[in-house]
Amino acid sequence: MKKDQNLARLLVMLAVVFALMAALRPGQFVTMANFGSMMRQFPEYGIMAIGISLTMITGGIDLGVVGTANLSAILAAKLLIGAVPRGAPPEQALPFVALAALLALACGLACGAFAGLLISRFKIPAILATLGTQQLYTGIAIGITNGRPQSGLPLLYSNLGNTEFLGLFPLSFLIFLLAALAIGLMLSRARFGTCMYMLGTNPKAAQYAGLGNASILVRTYMLSGLLSSVAGLIMMARANSAKAEYGTPYTLQCVLIAVLGGIDPNGGFGKIAGVTLAVFILQFLSSGLNMFNSISNFYRDVIWGGVLILALVVNSLLARREARLAVRRGARATRA
């Protein structure tokens, strides 16, 4: 009952934002070109938002997603630039592109595993541990590149990244959909998903129930790292380069998406369907605002912050009401 209400609320919000933008900028907003460009923009942060959501469900948070994404992308870029000579034919580049992607994914997994170990084995609070890993990964990325962008990627890579399926859907969009579906299914139906929710609700009870807390946490942060590295690869394809400080504002934006999408910041509750809707809402808002020349880009920060706080206020007021109702319903059911 509760989940449906949250999703319904988000759908209404999505419709309102869409209608508003369509009404104010009809010639620009409701166009194929705009939808095409939106589909290219949101997958990178949308995928990271899913990663952060997972960690928030287990009662933590991963503030290191952007650092992980950039470090993974830089490693892949270094490999590609070093191994593929300029102007090499696609056949020659393809195995290296595959290898670079694998390297990036492995890097994401390792980054996540490290954060997971800090949290589960060394008992560092997730906020601090991932503040630390964000600094560390970004720092390593700066250190090995001297802070310079890594460009000169083989043409094949950006071509692949910009492939459109059915002449409409970019590869990155499909990857986002696939990730959202797979993670959503895992959370709602798989054993591991249930364990994540339970761990996020009460870690001690999870320990006594034999769920294996350390392993759940490490795997959760590895998943978050993996998703981040996928986002890193997408960012690299879009910018046609990799840099240590790409996408810095994404951290906040992803937390915002997670909270807006109904993930409980205290852990234990939330669904990927909500997160996906929140991604769409934000993208509509952001693309729509871009169509107003008088609005500075920096107002987006204001709106992000404002929407985040509004989402918190609304969610907490509604949660309080629902808790009251649940207790009353429970009291009635027990008596009956």
């Binding site: 937390v255 204001v302 912050g305 985040l308």
Partner: peptide, 20 residues
Amino acid sequence: LPTLVVTLGTGSLYTGLMYG
């Protein structure tokens, strides 16, 4: 409201106001 998320939000709001 949870302090981390609130202050992430106000942080963004205030920086945005300053630059915007």
